[in-house]
Structure formats: C-alpha cells, structure tokens
Design a protein around this nucleic acid. Structure first.
Lengths: 257, 257
DNA sequence: AAGTGGTCTAGACCACTAC
DNA sequence: TAGTGGTCTAGACCACTTC
C-alpha cells in the first residue's frame, strides 16, 4: 500500500537535518547569503543546538557552508580548483617564475621528525625553512614550508654561521629568495607527492583564517637530485575551500562545479 | 623570572587534551592497543565526556586513533600509502592487468549531476556504472564507481536494451568486466585528477566499515579520448587510514611513517 | 552593548559488539 | 547481558565581530 519504510533504519537526526539543509541551500539560498543563526535554526527544526551544529559541521566539511565566529553562517561558493603542479611534463623547483606562490619568510630550524626522516638528516640538524603562501581570489588557500638541508645549498650561510654577523641583518624574505635561487642551480631529478588529511596547527590556522584543528589537505612533496632527497615541502591547503587538481599537461580544460 | 605565560592564550580544553593524549600515544601505547573507555578517560582528565570526545575525534581524523562502536578505541597503525597511479609515464585505463582494484558490480544508472556535467551528457541519460573496491592489508580502503557513457562503449548493451532479455541474465560482475574490456579498445588520450575532502555516503560508509559522514578523500579522474571525456571515475578513500601517493615513475622509493 | 559562533557541562538513551 | 561508542538534550558561559 505504499507504506514507505517501517523505521527499519532509524537515521540519526543530524544526518537527516544535513540532507534537508543541503537541499534548502540548493534551492532557497544564494552564494554568500547569510543563514539564520544557530539558535533560531535549532528551534525551527525542533532540535538541540548541539544537534544542529553537528549537521552544520558536516556541511562545512563538505564546503557547502562557511561559519565565522561573531559574524554568522554563510553559503560558501563552490570549491576552487587549485593546480598542484602538472605531474606529467618536466618537474620544476618551487619558486620557479610564474608559480602561484608568494615567498614570505625564512628561518633555520630543526626539521620536524617526519621531515628529517624524508630528508635523511639528523633530527637536530638545522635546515633552511622557507615559508610561502598561496592566494586565490583574495583568499589565502595554502601555506607551505619548504625544508632544505644546508648541504643541498652549501653556498647559502645558515643563521648559525653568522649571516647576521657579516654585512648586517638581511631581511628574512631576501634570505628566503636566496635559498630558492640556490636551489634552482641544482638539476631536479624527479619528485613525488602524497596527499593526506590533517588538522591545522595553530599557526597555519591563523594564516588560513580558520580555527586551530580545521581540516586541511597536507601535500608532501619530495624533490630529488641524483636520487637523493634534496628538499621536502609541506603544503597545507584549506580542505573546506580547495579541490586539489593534478592536471595533465594535455588536458587543461576546466573542471566546472 | 621564567613566568611561562600569563594566560594570554586561553587554549580550549579539548585542544590541550588532544596534545596530552597525542604524547601519551607516542610514549605509552603500542599500535593496536585498546584505550580506557571514554567515560573513564573523561573522569581521569576531569572533563565532560563530550569534551573528551572532541579531542578523540581530532585524533581519529589525524589517523592516530580508531574507534569502533561496541568495541572500543584503539591506537591506529601509521597511515598506509596508497598509490593513485603514477601521473608521469603512460596513463592506463582502470582494470588494466595488475592494478590494485577488484571489480565488483555493474548497473546502468542516471549519472549524478556533477558526473553528468564532466561527461557532458544529459542528467537523465543512463550510463554504465562499474563498481570496484580496493583492498590493502586485508582492509578495504577505497570504493570506486566508474561512469562510462553508453556511446563510449557502443558494443556493450545497456540494461534498457534488453541484456537480460537476450541470452539470459548475465552476472553483474561479468557485465562489469565486459565494460572494462570494451574500454581497453579505445586509445586513452590523457587523464586528469582532482582530490578533495568529502564525507562518506551511507553505502560507501558501509563498504569502508565506517559510519555515514566519515571523512573521505574523493579522487575524481577524467579519462580522455580524442579530447573528449570518455569516462569518469569517482573513488572514495578512507581519510583516516590512507595517504594518497602520486609517485613518480623514477622515484619509487618508500616514504616511511 | 548586542549578537554571533565556539566551548563545556551533566546528564539520558540508543545501537552495536562480544561474551 | 554487560560494556562500548554514537546520538541527543537543555542549559551555561566565553571569544569574537560589529555597531
């Protein structure tokens, strides 16, 4: 008799709520529009605020919503496709002319253990750390640290070797550019990448205008010279707003939506 | 006098908790070991269970923990690196000999709107949908649907054209293999990939042994023939256990950890 | 100062697994 | 049946943005 379903699957409330909201977003809201606040939405749907928030969290994770403390919840634009280097074709060093990154900063630090392992250097050994950022449409979408062991670019002095002693304190950004220039002297033998889910550390979160712990896509790139790992880059992309694209050189047509 | 910090940054409890737990995992627990249950952990740290759960959720997101209803919370092994096709070198069709996937199933369905858009077919038009799954270490890590428009493989009958009428009902798996074989006849002109964060739909969640809404990495691959999109694959990887690797052909050394 | 989302609490009950 | 994690509630207070 067309009885639809005998409650065999008690779907969680927040899951159902998410579906309802998702459809409402498609049909009744425009991008950038601001939703009613959480307390009102919860009341309207007859659920506790925590339950409503569980649904909103999921929608934000999927890039449908954007929530900002003190402001409100808005309908997010479709995810932007960010090109993460064409894998076919020749590989290039970071900082090559015309790449999408801005060079920010430089320091000499001890590499994090995971990076030290990839670089095959001692955990204590200081390495160059070049910080870069990537903008798209006025928004910062990614933050990167490029780790370069001292012996990959022997011509560049480390802080410890008195870069500030001789010739005055050079600007961090200038030092960063020096490291990149030195890298370009090496012949890049190859590279490989991995992508995984992570949560933003406090500093990255601030840079990406998110709260600490926000979901991010972590792209780890290993740069090879003579079969050896000459540098490692750790790039952190906003998972809510980005779709990483590994486009073919041949197939650079646009993937809409 | 060594006063460390004057509460200028009131770190959230769950964030601090996450740090503490993370360090405890490194030093005091072995992979696979089962943690005390949530009620006890919450009591031990003097927080509400919801707060404790917020910390656990983050750690699970980062692949440090694995929680299973009715069982408990265990320490997760390091993420497995799953190779998502070497991008350099010749591209291959799915189902090529030696690939990591198992062919499961076949149906003729209307493509989801996002896929229809990529394929440039009408939303209503039925397309072949081949379902495949990928195992690693006894665990299913990914679930894929390959959408192939009827006119890419004209030799293969769609359900509507009476595949079941003539010659008896063929097995779904057999039909799936037929579609793949037909694909291999076409000359693959290129491909491109995108990676983004998503949440598992109910069916994928079941297959991946997760709850609905679990975070997944969605890999969208477009296969090109004569500059036209001849097929689209939507692959869903468990974000908690997988690290996607886009290895170079030259650089197939192992990325540990 | 008013209004927003973010954090936190202390409970309750449910769905699932294993014994 | 006992024990686990998953869902849900009704409230409180906090941090932040905006006016």
């Amino acid at each position: 008799m067309g009885t639809t379903q005998l409650e065999t699957v008690p779907e969680p409330k927040y899951w159902h709520l998410k579906t309802v909201l998702s459809e409402a977003l498609d049909s009744e809201f425009a991008v950038g529009e601001i939703l009613p606040n959480e307390r009102e939405l919860a009341a309207r749907f007859g659920v506790a605020r925590a339950t409503l928030r569980q649904a909103l969290e999921q929608l934000e994770l999927e890039g449908r919503l954007q929530r900002r403390r003190g402001v409100g919840t808005t309908v997010a634009p479709p995810r932007v496709g960010v090109d993460v280097g064409s894998e076919s074709g020749p590989h290039t060093w970071p900082g090559a002319p015309g790449d999408a990154w801005h060079t920010d900063d430089h320091a000499c630090v001890a590499a994090p253990s995971t990076v030290a392992q990839l670089l095959d250097v001692d955990t204590e050994a200081p390495v160059h750390a070049v910080r870069r950022s990537r903008m798209t449409g006025g928004q910062q979408v990614a933050s990167e640290i490029l780790y370069v062991p001292a012996d990959t670019v022997p011509a560049v002095p480390t802080d410890a070797e008195g870069a500030e002693g001789a010739g005055g304190t050079t600007h961090p950004t200038a030092r960063a550019r020096t490291v990149l220039r030195a890298l370009h002297q090496c012949e890049l033998g190859g590279q490989d990448r991995t992508v995984e889910l992570g949560s933003a550390r406090a500093d990255d979160a601030r840079r990406l205008d998110r709260l600490p712990g926000a979901p991010v896509l972590v792209v780890t790139t290993r740069y090879l010279v003579d079969g050896r790992t000459a540098a490692v880059s750790l790039a952190t992309y906003r998972a809510d707003t980005c779709r990483l694209s590994f486009s073919d050189g041949d197939a650079m047509s646009l993937m809409a939506s």
